[in-house]
Amino acid sequence: TSIVNVSSSLNVRSSASTSSKVIGSLSGNTKVTIVGEEGAFYKIEYKGSHGYVAKEYI
């Protein structure tokens, strides 16, 4: 489990790309479970499925 480190919110994306669809967002200090990594993104558990967040904010 890791913590989201942002002051406002962090986009959760459908794939490991800044141009991919935003499927949701997480607020600062939210706990997330990392299940993998791809480039500059972590794959996380998100709403019963998976999403991707930028590593620099975790």
Rank of each mutant, 00 (worst) to 15 (best):
N11G: 07
G51W: 02
K43P: 00
I34E: 00
Y46W: 13
S19E: 13
V12C: 03
A54C: 15
V53C: 02
A54F: 11
A16C: 05
G36L: 04
H50W: 14
N5S: 12
H50D: 05
G51V: 03
S17C: 08
A54Y: 12
E37K: 05
E56S: 08
S20V: 02
F41V: 01
S2C: 15
S8C: 15
V53H: 01
V6T: 13
Y46F: 14
G36E: 05
S49Q: 10
V32Y: 06
N11C: 15
T1S: 11
R13S: 06
S27M: 13
T18G: 10
I3N: 07
N11D: 15
K43M: 09
L26A: 02
E38N: 06
G28K: 14
S8A: 12
G24T: 03
G28M: 13
I34T: 02
Y42E: 00
I34C: 04
V22C: 08
S20M: 02
G39P: 02
A16Y: 03
Y52P: 00
Y42L: 05
I23T: 03
S8R: 10
H50Y: 15
E38T: 07
G24Y: 06
G24E: 02
L10F: 11
V4C: 14
Y52C: 01
S2Q: 11
A16M: 04
G39E: 05
K31W: 13
S17V: 05
G24M: 06
A54T: 07
V35N: 03
S7W: 08
E45D: 08
V6M: 10
I58Y: 06
S7Y: 07
T30S: 11
K55R: 07
G48A: 06
Y46Q: 00
H50S: 06
G51Q: 01
K31Q: 13
K31H: 11
H50F: 15
S49D: 08
S25Y: 13
E56P: 05
T33F: 10
F41W: 13
V22N: 04
N29Q: 10
S17D: 12
I23Q: 02
T18L: 15
T30R: 06
E38S: 07
T18W: 15
I58D: 03
K43H: 03
R13A: 05
V12A: 01
S25F: 14
Y46G: 00
V32K: 01
K31M: 13
V4W: 05
N11H: 14
E38Q: 07
K47Y: 08
V12P: 01
A16D: 02
V22S: 06
F41T: 01
K31N: 10
K55D: 01
K21Q: 11
V53F: 02
T1P: 12
N29L: 11
S7A: 11
L26I: 14
S19G: 10
G39V: 03
I34A: 02
I34P: 02
Y46P: 00
E38W: 06
I58M: 07
V12N: 00
K31G: 06
I23M: 07
K55Q: 05
F41G: 00
Y57M: 10
N29Y: 13
K47L: 12
I44V: 06
L26V: 08
K43W: 04
V32S: 01
I3G: 10
E56V: 11
S17A: 07
S15K: 10
Y57I: 06
E45V: 12
V6N: 09
S17I: 06
T33A: 07
L10Y: 08
S9W: 13
S19C: 12
G28E: 11
G28H: 13
L10V: 15
G48C: 07
S9A: 12
I34S: 01
K55T: 03
K55G: 02
E37M: 09
I23R: 02
A40T: 08
E38H: 07
G36N: 05
L10E: 04
G39L: 05
F41D: 02
K47P: 02
L10C: 15
G39H: 05
N29V: 08
G48R: 04
K21Y: 08
I44R: 00
S14Y: 11
V32C: 05
L10K: 04
V22Q: 04
S20E: 03
L10I: 15
E38K: 06
G36V: 03
I34L: 05
S2G: 15
T18V: 11
I58N: 04
S14V: 13
S27K: 13
S49W: 06
E56C: 14
V35S: 04
V35Q: 05
K21R: 12
V4R: 05
N5I: 15
S27A: 14
S27Q: 14
V6S: 12
R13W: 15
V12E: 01
S8D: 12
Y57A: 14
N5K: 08
S25E: 10
G39A: 05
S17W: 04
L26M: 06
Y42H: 02
S2A: 15
E45T: 09
V4A: 10
V6Y: 05
R13H: 15
S14A: 15
S15I: 05
Y57E: 15
E56N: 07
A16N: 04
I3E: 08
E37T: 07
G36W: 03
N11A: 15
I3Y: 12
I58E: 04
E56T: 08
F41H: 03
K55I: 06
G28L: 11
S2L: 14
T30P: 04
I23W: 02
G28N: 14
I23E: 02
Y57N: 10
T1N: 12
I23H: 02
S15N: 09
F41N: 01
N11T: 14
I34D: 01
K47F: 09
N11I: 15
S17H: 10
T30H: 08
I23Y: 02
E45G: 03
A54H: 09
G28T: 12
E38V: 09
K43I: 13
S8H: 15
K47W: 06
S49H: 09
N29R: 07
G51N: 02
S14R: 08
V4T: 09
S15C: 13
S20I: 01
N5Q: 10
S7P: 10
S25H: 14
T1Y: 07
T33R: 09
V35E: 04
K31A: 11
I44Y: 00
G36C: 08
T1G: 12
Y42C: 03
N29H: 10
S7G: 13
S25W: 13
I44W: 05
